[in-house]
Amino acid sequence: MAKTIEKRVALMLAAGILILFLAGCSSPSQNLPAGNAQNITNAPPASPGCGNEACFITAANNCESMNLTVTDEVGTFSFSSSKSCVFTKTLVSLNANETREMKNALEGKSMYCIYEKGNFDQRWVTSLIYGLENCQGDLKDRLADLTIFP
């Protein structure tokens, strides 16, 4: 079993690295003080950027290459979409009030979700756990594990 998991993790890790390289990673944005309302950062995009979630969702749905970084009460997330219809979500940083253990478990973790053009699940952007079953990666596994706790 351990060997099987290791092999699968290795495959997924390789796939994740490949996706991050080709889909483009957005640079992490600065942490904002806790308690702020949702705030959109406008980090200079390496590829064309979007100013808001609606713009990003539209672009992703068309399988366009796009980046967006969003900070809300939970933390800062970066999203990217690619011409290959691969969506990548990274939890860049958690709210400063989260425990060190939560930060260690989740910060910097990513997940990727493959979809068909016209069938982008916008819940991947607007929620934490909806649609996770169609994604893969460390962030997906960690968030899924957290659903067990009441």
Partner: peptide, 24 residues
């Protein structure tokens, strides 16, 4: 244990857990 938590994360002390709970 797998996630390295010494205590269970709870909505009372984690905004992320609060959001997970709300979504559930």
């Amino acid at each position: 244990r797998e996630l390295g938590f010494s205590t269970f994360p709870k909505p009372a002390n984690s905004l992320l857990m609060r959001k997970v709970g709300t979504e559930k």
